[in-house]
Design a protein around this nucleic acid. Structure first.
Lengths: 155, 155
DNA sequence: TTACTTTCTCAAGTAGACTTTAACTCAAGG
DNA sequence: CCTTGAGTTAAAGTCTACTTGAGAAAGTAA
């Protein structure tokens, strides 16, 4: 006889919320955003499978790493809806994430060095300051909240 | 005879926008936020001094470093309105910024290591995964855009 | 069955950093 | 003088990642 949770058709949103620590409203939001697609009971209530817990965990971890929901969606929409990333998926996606993280760290370190340079000279000049480079400024065009330091969405 | 720009009472918003690369709307916004306080011509138009260029540059650089306007305001409101940070101000503020940056880099590196660990084991488990720690999740409570990895406002 | 808890949907609110639009006024050039 | 380009204000829109609230239907316990 399978455990209790499996005798039912699936977990309710409240149950999976408890198991993941996410608010139900957040989980519904992820659904709106196409990150997760639960079944529906005849009554219309959402029913989640156990793999969805891992799927949500993955989302939380990726956010922890600093990725946007759009980035995350790009990485998991290739997986069947009721599957969380398995080991091979995770290796692939994790490696991809790692590269982005490395780039991010490198960028910050570069910035850090520039800052040290700049503290030394005290220039703060539009034309001379190494911190104040036009390339970065060009990247800032457009509206909406900025990604931290030149992040571009993942392909 | 002083250069052209100095014969007038100051730069218009369009002129300073061109010199800094900022949009006029952004500069007005900074004013609303108390980051800069230009004089007014009799007609009511804003007039900027040359020091304001450096002041705006400072704002741009600080943003580049990842600081919020609130943080930046906290650092420059001590300066007289028509002054940009001078060498000693810059050393003080720059050092403060440097520390925050260092902390940020350390955090990301830690995250990066965890990720590598995690790619190896492929666990992605709610209970076991080092990436998935409840403390960090607790910090995420509440609304509004999240700061990247535990940044707190500067004093 | 009554009472209470969940869940549902849809709309609106929140923060930060701006942009866009509307409706005007003003300054400079021909 | 008249047009055009720039400046002014206030209000509303934008984006992300959610939360909150309203009102209704469904599930659960006693």
């Amino acid at each position: 006889m399978p455990p209790k949770a499996l005798r039912k058709t699936g977990l309710t949103i409240g149950e999976i919320a408890d198991r993941t620590g996410l608010a139900p409203s957040a989980i519904r939001y992820y659904e709106d955003e196409g990150l997760i697609a639960p079944d529906r009971a005849v009554s219309g209530q959402r029913r989640y499978q156990r793999a969805d817990i891992r799927r949500l965990s993955f989302i939380m971890i990726a956010q922890e790493l600093g990725f946007s929901l759009a980035d995350i969606r790009a990485q998991i929409t290739h997986l069947p809806s009721h599957r969380a990333p398995g080991k091979s998926d995770w290796t692939r996606i994790g490696t991809r994430f790692g590269k982005v993280l490395d780039a991010r760290i490198a960028q910050m370190q570069q910035l850090r060095n520039k800052l040290d340079n700049c503290i030394g000279c005290g220039c703060l000049s539009l034309t001379d300051c190494t911190l104040y480079n036009p390339e970065d400024r060009a990247a800032r065009r457009g509206i909406g909240p900025r990604y931290l330091k030149g992040d571009k969405p993942l392909e």
